[in-house]
Structure formats: structure tokens, C-alpha cells
């Protein structure tokens, strides 16, 4: 009974996922779950397969082996239309922000809104854009181009573009990389705010320990493409494992 309740609360279920490039295996039989409403932080050194993992979840990369179930649907078996429908429920914050260079911030936010929330009128769209931008602290940037914003502002704008379509799941690819500690803290706070306000479940890929401390309900550490350790932030900080200790000490 308890097992089935647990199963019902799963939003992402990954079993034995393997993915390789040019005969080099990046993910090796990796299995993990994301529970409803949970913030799962995936830690790991560069090249440990963190970004590949979340790209496989939205099928930007095709898995070589294993299964990925998102909201009960096997991502690898979906047809393109079904996949597009599923992707509407997933928000993806890219490491670089990936704002569209040729569009203003307003047009950037309008882009997914027009295509996903087709029933909204222009007035409703404008209100929604303004509301979301205010939520991320960028109320004044509507008509600015991405190139006119700082790195932190671009990340915020990108987050606004992701949450504007009310996703159920958020995937953050190194959200604090390249930002100063103050801005990083701001982004971490924003991630928690998004979780509370939009009731999302999130996977946060990072190697920023402060970000992990601020956001994680649970942490998974990857090493050589597989789960090395799983637990709470306290479990990690109290761990006697040499690798975990060196990682935490170095990063702190």
C-alpha cells in the first residue's frame, strides 16, 4: 500500500539509464526518482554526466538504454506530438540562459506563451508577462534586449520565460554558474520561491554547494555516470567518504 502511494507521487522515474558518446559511456545504468513537490539536487564534478541526465529527461538527447518515465509516460517511446505535449509541463532553465538574442525580453516571454497557452487574449498575456517579470525582480526590463542585461538578470529572465507556462516540473542546468555569490544566493532563493508559488518538482544540476544547501530536499551525487551517494545535505556534510569530503571542503 505504502509502495503504491510512493509510486503515485513519482513525477520522474529513471531506471538503468545509459548514454554514451563516441564509445565513451557518460551515464552507466543510472536510476533515480523525483517525488512530487521535491527539490532534488544532482551534484557532481564536470563531466560526470549531470547535464546529459536532464537532457535525456526532455529527450534533447536520446537514451541508449533504460527507461525514463515522466508523469507516468515513457519519454523514449513518445511520438513527437505527445512529446511536445509532455514538454509543455516541463520547464528547462539552460546553463547559458538561452534567451533568444533577436527578441526583446517581452517577446522572449511571449514566445512560449503564444504557443502553449493559446487561449489567452493579448491583454491576459501582457498581464501574465508583467506578473512573472515582477516575480523574478525584472519588472523594468520588458523592452530591453538580452544583450543589455547582466548575467544574473539574463538568468532571471530565462527563469521567467520557463515558469510563465506554469510547468509541473523544473529542470535547472547549473543555475548559478558564472554568477557572483550574492547573485547566486538570489537565484537560489528564486528557485525556492518558484517551488512554493508554482508547486513544482525540480531537479537542480549544480556543483555549487551553497546553491545545494539553499535548495535541496534531497541530494544525489554522481560519479562516473552513476549514483555515488544519495541523502540529505546533513548526510553529505557528515559523510566520512573521502570523495564527498574533498568535494564539500573544496567547494566550501
Amino acid at each position: 500500500m505504502q509502495e503504491s502511494t510512493k509510486k503515485n507521487n513519482l513525477v520522474i522515474e529513471i531506471c538503468n539509464l545509459s548514454k554514451g558518446f563516441d564509445n565513451q559511456l557518460v551515464l552507466k545504468n543510472l536510476s533515480l526518482n523525483l517525488m512530487d513537490g521535491e527539490n532534488l539536487v544532482v551534484l557532481g564534478k564536470s563531466g560526470s554526466g549531470k547535464s546529459v541526465l536532464i537532457k535525456c529527461i526532455v529527450r534533447l538527447l536520446n537514451a541508449d538504454q533504460g527507461s525514463i518515465h515522466v508523469l507516468g509516460k515513457n519519454v523514449n517511446e513518445l511520438r513527437s506530438k505527445e512529446l511536445a505535449k509532455l514538454r509543455e509541463k516541463i520547464g528547462f532553465l539552460f546553463q547559458s540562459g538561452a534567451l533568444y538574442d533577436s527578441m526583446t525580453i517581452k517577446q522572449n516571454l511571449e514566445f512560449p506563451l503564444i504557443r502553449i497557452k493559446k487561449k489567452l487574449t493579448k491583454k491576459e498575456r501582457d498581464e501574465k508577462i508583467e506578473e512573472v517579470l515582477v516575480n523574478v525582480g525584472l519588472g523594468e526590463t520588458l523592452d530591453q534586449m538580452p544583450s543589455e542585461l547582466s548575467g544574473g538578470m539574463r538568468k532571471r529572465a530565462s527563469l521567467a520565460r520557463t515558469i510563465i507556462v506554469d510547468p509541473m516540473i523544473m529542470l535547472y542546468d547549473e543555475p548559478t554558474t558564472g554568477l557572483d555569490p550574492v547573485t547566486s544566493n538570489g537565484i537560489s532563493t528564486l528557485i525556492n520561491d518558484v517551488q512554493k508559488k508554482y508547486k513544482t518538482s525540480s531537479i537542480i544540476i549544480t556543483h555549487d554547494i551553497e546553491c545545494a544547501r539553499a535548495t535541496a530536499d534531497r541530494i544525489i551525487m554522481l560519479k562516473d555516470g552513476d549514483v555515488y551517494m544519495e541523502g540529505s545535505i546533513d548526510d553529505f556534510e557528515n559523510s566520512t567518504d573521502e570523495l564527498i569530503q574533498s568535494f564539500f571542503k573544496e567547494k566550501t
Partner: peptide
């Protein structure tokens, strides 16, 4: 940006 377009359906 192309990936971002793809994941936003």
C-alpha cells in the same frame, strides 16, 4: 537557443 525552442514545444 535551438534546444530552448525545442523544449518549449
Amino acid at each position: 537557443q535551438i534546444d530552448a525552442m525545442e523544449v518549449s514545444s
